[in-house]
Design a protein around this nucleic acid. Structure first.
Length: 508
RNA sequence: GAUUCCGUAGCUCAGCCGGUAGAGCAUUACACUUUUAAUGUAAGGGUCCUGGGUUCGAAUCCCAGCGGGAUCACCA
């Protein structure tokens, strides 16, 4: 590969060669035994000094302050950063000072990973540090690492904040912007809290197909791929709903899956082509039960994360204390427009949209028009967690008809910070009704709606065997994480958000 | 998809009316045995995103493309 190397890269390769010629393996194979972490030392040294007289720790060098016959450096391990003190006569006690003068000072760079042994002490200026007695290079770094410095007041200098750099080279982002690691630890913690909650409630974690011959369970454009041996097209799933409901038919009373779903649609700060959705289904329950269950689960997740129910998101403080407010969609629209649409037909709804300056299309049916009004006038107002309940039937082909109100279904969405976080309903388990709903979708498809659902005949067959009444929900894990970590962009909560391929790299 | 802003050293950024590029950090060399963005002195480092055009001359002006961000539309 013909690489264009910078001055600093050439220099580091030269250093690598010299290390090898000195008999130092820059990438040793041996295990380096560690008995402490940066965080452990900082938290426990002061009250347990005897236990930190002989420690072994490894990490990446981030800064070096050279004082002549001694150096201060900062290393970073998984737990954080700690200062090390390297003195010439301690790591090179004999006549031969080359380990300090040459190897440490000339051949080891910022970005290298080293293992050290030594003892913990507190410097004159009060910083807990490691006095190094032995030092081993564990991995030589060939690329210069951007240096982000922070002063006492917390102000940082040369912070790498170019999103392209950070997302394409997330590994560098994670090294130099340690607060980024925190977001991802929280993401994992959120998922763990939810998993524990669902396990404690007796639900079974399952896995269902990602490659599907009929992409179902949502209205969205799928990615298509091809299976060579079967010679058939396969789709990456847009949802796992229909498979989880098949498992309810099969006799599991509660199932859940943290699912990677894929949608071949636009990308922006709340959409990535692959994303994570938690879906779960519980037999013999309805959407009222699901609201209580979900709000308690989310409240518990927030408490696990922060110790209380309040989270600061942008300018707002959101309180996740259950129970959440419940508002019907008609009441929401009445509240924010003053208009009662509950008895309107399609023409009247279209007129209402016009009077509210909402753009409509001829293809929009009654349900879609209502949804447009809600989206334009109401959605953004719900900062605190609020269940919007009872949706028009046209938008909800997998949802059971409302037990009391005609033209509505038993569905709710959870709105937080003006955005939808969860979508749930009493699942439609009447196979004949479900078949009619699919056929309605087919008509939409024939009218040119490329997002309308396909008819899944096997799913209908499953329903014909009988599915218990079931409550189901889907929760956007990426968006929940964005909320709970106060990030406005989905790219900030995905390690590797989708990017266009880097031309310069592939052609190099 | 539409609009708009941005792309200069490893990183963060200057660069005016068009005259062949600068700073800080990083790097290299020297000094310094408890420093805190360590400091001081000196040095090296550039496909100014790519390709065209205008011009005696383009990082700068114009056009097209590539990449990224933001806003809007659609969606979760």
């Amino acid at each position: 590969m013909d690489q264009h190397l910078s001055e600093q890269e050439i220099l580091r390769r030269d250093k690598l060669k010299e290390l090898i010629s000195l008999g130092i393996n820059p990438y040793p194979a041996n295990e380096f035994k560690i008995n402490a972490s940066a965080l452990d030392i900082k938290e426990n040294y002061e009250r347990d000094k005897l236990n930190y007289k002989d420690i072994s720790i490894a990490g990446r060098i981030l800064t070096v302050r050279d004082m002549g016959k001694a150096c201060f450096a900062q290393i970073q391990d998984a737990s954080g950063r700690i200062q090390i003190y390297v003195r010439r006569d301690d790591i090179s006690p004999g006549e031969d000072k080359s380990l300090f003068d040459h190897v440490w000072k000339k051949l080891i760079d910022i970005g290298d990973i080293i293992g050290i042994k030594g003892f913990v002490f507190t410097t004159k200026t009060g910083e807990i540090s490691i006095h190094v007695t032995q030092l081993q290079l564990l991995s030589k770094s060939l690329k210069p690492l951007p240096i982000v410095k922070t002063d006492d007041s917390g102000q940082s200098f040369d912070e790498v904040n170019d999103p392209e750099f950070r997302f394409r080279q997330r590994y560098v982002d994670l090294i130099i912007n340690p607060q980024i690691r925190d977001t991802f630890r929280k993401r994992t913690q959120i998922i763990q809290s939810i998993r524990n909650y669902l396990n404690n409630a007796g639900l079974l974690e399952v896995e269902t197909p990602i490659l599907q011959s009929i992409p179902g369970g949502a209205t969205a454009r799928p990615f298509v791929t091809h299976h060579n041996a079967l010679n058939i097209p396969l789709y990456l799933r847009i949802a796992n709903e229909l498979y989880l409901k098949r498992l309810i038919v099969g006799g599991f009373d509660g199932v859940y899956e943290f699912a990677k779903d894929f949608r071949n649609e636009g990308m922006d700060r709340t959409h990535n082509p692959e994303f994570t959705v938690l879906e779960f289904y519980v037999a013999y329950k309805d959407y009222n039960w699901m609201m209580s269950f979900a709000e308690q689960m989310i409240e518990k997740t927030v408490i696990d994360l922060y110790g209380n129910t309040e989270v600061k998101v942008g300018e707002n403080t959101i309180d996740f204390k259950a129970p959440f407010k419940r508002v019907t969609m008609y009441d929401a629209i009445k509240e924010y427009t003053g208009i009662d649409i509950s008895n309107m037909n399609e023409t009247e709804l279209r007129e209402t949209c016009k009077s509210l300056n909402i753009h409509t299309e001829a293809s929009m049916g009654k349900g879609k028009l209502i949804d447009e009004i809600f989206g334009a006038k109401c959605e953004g107002n719900y900062m605190q967690p609020t269940f919007i309940i009872d949706y028009p039937i046209e938008m909800s082909p997998l949802t059971k008809k409302h037990r009391a109100a005609k033209g509505l279904v038993e569905r709710f969405e959870l709105m937080i910070n003006g955005k939808e976080i969860a979508n749930a309903y009493s699942e439609l388990n009447d196979p004949l009704d479900q078949r009619e709903r699919f056929e309605e979708q087919l008509k939409l498809q024939e009218r040119g709606d490329d997002e309308a659902m396909f008819i899944d005949h096997d799913f209908l067959r499953a329903l014909e065997y009988g599915m218990p009444p079931t409550a189901g929900i889907g929760i956007g894990i990426d968006r929940l994480t964005m909320l709970l970590t106060n990030n406005a962009s989905i790219q900030e909560v995905l390690f590797f958000p989708q990017m266009r391929p880097e031309k310069t790299l592939s052609e190099a």
